[in-house]
Design a protein around this nucleic acid. Structure first.
Lengths: 345, 345
DNA sequence: TTGAAAGCGCTAACAC
DNA sequence: GTGTTAGCGCTTTCAA
């Protein structure tokens, strides 16, 4: 049974001091080539790898960034992938804390706090501002992700929800829609509110009302169920605007299962720009938020804050930086009139 | 600027020794209620949280499990979510190492090794067996995930790829298919090979050939492109069997964009059982591998190995445990004859 | 029950 | 260039 091999073991094997072993791995240029070779050989035979945990105890830096992210949803999954990839590219690791609806976010945060991560990305709307303020006080670099409500308390990164939804609304108006039904996910979520506001204002400017129905969540099934409510209404709206893509896929399938055809009977928009929105099967008109860009900003903000902490002890730029990334509208067949009648069935 | 508060600070504040503070958090039952209250109060005012990193240095246990997982693909994203959730439920954290095609997996592994995680789940087919053997020697509890080739070297968890694909093949035969085209992802991947073998054998028993074409990857776009090759062939096969769901979505959309209708012109199967396969838009016949079950087995195996390490110093059960989880076939409309001609277009 | 003291594996002065 | 030494924040004997 191989015991944990440490720098002391390597030192013994190589016939040098422990400090020399440490140097060989942390600043090899301060070790003579001959010694270095000896040490490396010894390390190789023993299978030694420096212990980053022990290192971090001294250096006060773990090179680990934490992220608190909802456990489910296509959008969040792509965000997680992006974080992991981008942090890896910067030599950092991702300690992932995911939570589901049933979880107690406070418990998750308590758990996070123990791990002295270098920075923390918070992507939960369920973290109260009091909690945020308290965590911020500990000096842990915090960044709120896609959580506009946190802006003003901690630095935040999000897509421009309002103007994105506004753009979609203008597009819908441009397609001639005069009656619009809006399908939200969770009405208490700040992103949900802001997106709805964008739609309502833009439509209002054209004298178009924008009734809101809450699907109760952002998942496919929520949308599928919500579609039934739309289909049951006395008359169909010209357009349905949905607060998220996954939700929109559900609405779309739900509508079609009810015999309503998109875009012939009504047009439909989503929000997020998931990969699937571009798949030919759905080809959804949506607002593309670039997870890569958003994540890049969040990672940069997080690491800058950490590094700032280490050089300048106190930065009293009292107003936290809020990054708002513009989205891009993507026009798909869900809002594109079918030119020629379908010839394939 | 709040300084890092340690148990020493709390001890001073509470007027007790540092050891007592430590005890209050690690084994409160060994501290008198009065003292405990004092310490907790002091910790509260100072905002003290125990440092898990420092703890792990002494306890030789980080409560962190690492996972090396491909950065992209719908399937892997759901696997990551499942790992995160299930580890969290057991009080463990997930240190995620994702890698893309461009990454050097060895570099990733070197990085992992530094972090003395309690266990490591490997989900990359690109880790050679030599590498595996070497890592196994360090005593780190390793578990291979969906990587049947690693079986025999390290404990592994995977779905029963061969019999799963076999079941699909039988289903396809049952639907009357006599000519079948198989679309693989990456022919060098062991899962790909084993799945193909399952199809080829089952079909062979019915005297049906199973030509293989490689899409070059498991992504949607790979499938979309591969569809063109099928469409160009002199005559269409009765059925197309695809090595993965995401790939299958691409094939499906690609075929339909070429005017080929599924299931009318040919039937189609996938493999994985992604959530989207159940979405009405695709409704794909596929082999559902339960990520929850797979992940649960992997987590259990990993933690059991770690805990085994600590109680029994040497377990010379020379044959590593290999867990093979059966999949479940899901019949969707891609292999279901349309009873009534479509009335909606 | 509580305190003193010795590490866990590493880094970083500081000497030589 | 290399060795010595003192911690980083915690757990854990061992005494008291």
């Amino acid at each position: 049974m191989p015991r944990r091999v440490t720098s002391v073991d390597v030192a013994a094997e190589a016939g040098v001091s422990q400090a020399t072993v440490a140097r060989t791995f942390s600043s090899p240029e301060h070790v003579s080539p001959a010694t270095r070779a000896k040490v490396e050989a010894a390390a190789e035979t023993l299978g030694y790898v420096p212990n980053a945990i022990a290192r971090s105890l001294k250096s006060q830096r773990t090179n680990i960034v934490g992220a608190v992210v909802p456990a489910t949803g296509e959008f969040w999954q792509s965000v997680i992938s992006a974080f992991s990839a981008q942090l890896a590219a910067r030599g950092e690791q991702l300690l992932l804390f995911s939570f589901s609806d049933a979880d107690d976010v406070d418990a998750v945060l308590a758990s996070v706090a123990q791990y002295r991560v270098d920075g923390l990305v918070l992507a939960s709307a369920r973290i109260g501002s009091g909690q945020l303020v308290r965590m911020e006080r500990t000096g842990l670099p915090l960044v709120a992700f896609n959580q506009p409500a946190a802006a003003g308390i901690v630095p935040s990164v999000s897509v421009d929800n309002e103007s994105g939804m506004r753009d979609l609304a203008e597009h819908v108006i441009g397609r001639g829609a005069r009656t619009v039904q809006y399908v939200g996910g969770i009405s208490s979520a700040s992103t949900d509110q802001i997106r709805y506001r964008g739609a309502a204002r833009a439509l209002g400017e054209h004298g178009v009302a924008c009734p809101y129905i809450a699907a109760g969540g952002f998942a496919y099934d929520d949308g599928y169920k919500a579609a039934a409510r739309i289909a049951q209404a006395d008359d169909l709206p010209d357009a349905v605007m949905v607060a998220g893509d996954e939700l929109a896929f559900g609405v779309l399938d739900g509508l079609e299962s009810g015999g309503i055809r998109v875009p012939d009977d009504l047009i439909l928009t989503g929000f997020d720009g998931l990969p699937q929105a571009s798949w030919a099967g759905y080809d959804l008109t949506t607002l593309v938020q670039s997870t890569d860009v958003l994540v890049e900003k969040a990672v940069k903000l997080t690491l800058d804050r950490r590094d700032g902490d280490q050089t300048a002890r106190s930065d009293d730029t009292s107003a936290p930086a809020d990054v708002v990334v513009p989205g891009t509208i993507r026009i798909g067949k869900t809002t594109t009139p079918t030119q020629t009648p379908r010839n394939d069935g």
